[in-house]
Amino acid sequence: MITRDFLQNADCKTAFGTIEESLLLSPEQRSASLDCTLRRRPDNSPVWIFGYGSLMWNPVFDSEEVQPATLFGWHRAFCLRLTAGRGTHSQPGRMLALKEGGKTTGLAFRLPEEKLREELELLWKREMLTGCYVPTWCELTLLSGQQVTALVFIMDSAHPLFEADTRYQVIAPLIANASGPLGTNAQYLFALEQELRNHGMQDDCLHELVDQVRLLQKAANADNCDPDSQAR
């Protein structure tokens, strides 16, 4: 699991696995991306971050407030080809992002103003290694009904790692088999399912995917335990 200490000390070229040099953002490029995003910050309002994947159960950054929230107009999709972290170039997995349409339930984190730059630099080092996301200011609806503006990491459909085909039949075998320095791709999927359950949330698009990945892993384990299959 990613920790604050890991992120602070990580060498981005090696800590997450092998990342193609042409895709990797330099520290200067990440800083410029963060500067550009902050210049678009609306009216110096509090900075909220919308977590819809691993940020929900392992945000790493410090926050002053956490609220369940809904983002309208975007939905979860495993549309990012994963060649580092929980996948490799030889056995890529799929990572979560957001695609246009529908809605997404997740958690909104309000960052402390006095540590804003420090926390966002950590977040950029985690999410913007290759610039595959477009950090976008979006309106969220908190559980209370309050509307807040939050930073949301949305998939850049022009990025080389974008994958348009997110049918569970296509991506389940990838997620079931991929792993890397940060663990397995399936662990990420199952952790997401559990975290949504913990908050009384659900995402219909996950059900078939989770079931299929579990079936594939069960079949693979059965084959590994079958001496006859080893001889074939």
Rank of each mutant, 00 (worst) to 15 (best):
H199S: 07
A84R: 10
C225T: 13
F109E: 05
A231G: 05
S31D: 13
F162Q: 00
V66W: 06
I19T: 06
L143Q: 15
G200P: 07
E28L: 12
V213Q: 02
E193I: 00
T37G: 02
T88H: 02
L107M: 15
I19S: 05
G180Q: 06
N177K: 15
A172Q: 06
M128A: 02
A15D: 04
S157W: 06
F109S: 05
Q230V: 13
G183D: 09
R30T: 03
G145D: 07
L129H: 07
L107Y: 13
D35T: 15
L96E: 01
D43T: 13
H159T: 00
E114L: 13
L161K: 03
N198R: 15
Q212C: 13
L98M: 11
G93V: 07
P92L: 08
P92C: 06
L34Q: 13
D211V: 00
A222F: 11
L98E: 02
P112V: 11
Q147M: 10
T130R: 01
Q29N: 08
A77W: 07
A219P: 02
V210R: 00
Q212N: 10
I154W: 04
L216A: 08
L25D: 08
V60L: 12
A220S: 13
D204Y: 00
V152N: 04
R39D: 14
A178N: 06
Q187R: 12
L143E: 15
N177H: 14
S179I: 03
E28N: 09
T37R: 13
G51L: 04
S45V: 07
Y188R: 01
R117F: 07
G85T: 09
N221V: 03
S45K: 15
F50G: 04
F72L: 09
Q147S: 14
P92Y: 08
T3R: 03
R30K: 14
F162V: 00
P68C: 07
S22Y: 13
K103M: 12
Q29Y: 12
T3V: 11
Y52G: 02
T149D: 12
R76D: 01
A176P: 01
A178W: 04
M95S: 14
Y168S: 05
H199L: 08
P160K: 00
W48V: 03
E113V: 15
R41I: 02
T88E: 02
D211S: 00
A191G: 11
F162T: 01
T136I: 10
A10C: 14
D35W: 07
T130K: 00
L182N: 03
E114S: 14
L189T: 02
D203G: 01
A231I: 14
A186S: 15
P92M: 10
S45M: 14
F78K: 04
L209S: 00
Q194W: 08
C138G: 08
S63T: 09
E118C: 08
S144K: 09
S31H: 11
W137P: 05
K99Q: 15
M1K: 12
V134I: 14
R232N: 15
D5F: 09
G17E: 11
V47I: 15
W48G: 04
Q29T: 09
Y168P: 01
Q169H: 10
A220T: 11
A150Y: 12
P112D: 10
I171W: 03
T141L: 10
A10T: 02
C138M: 13
I171F: 02
L38D: 07
T88G: 04
R4T: 11
E139M: 12
L174P: 04
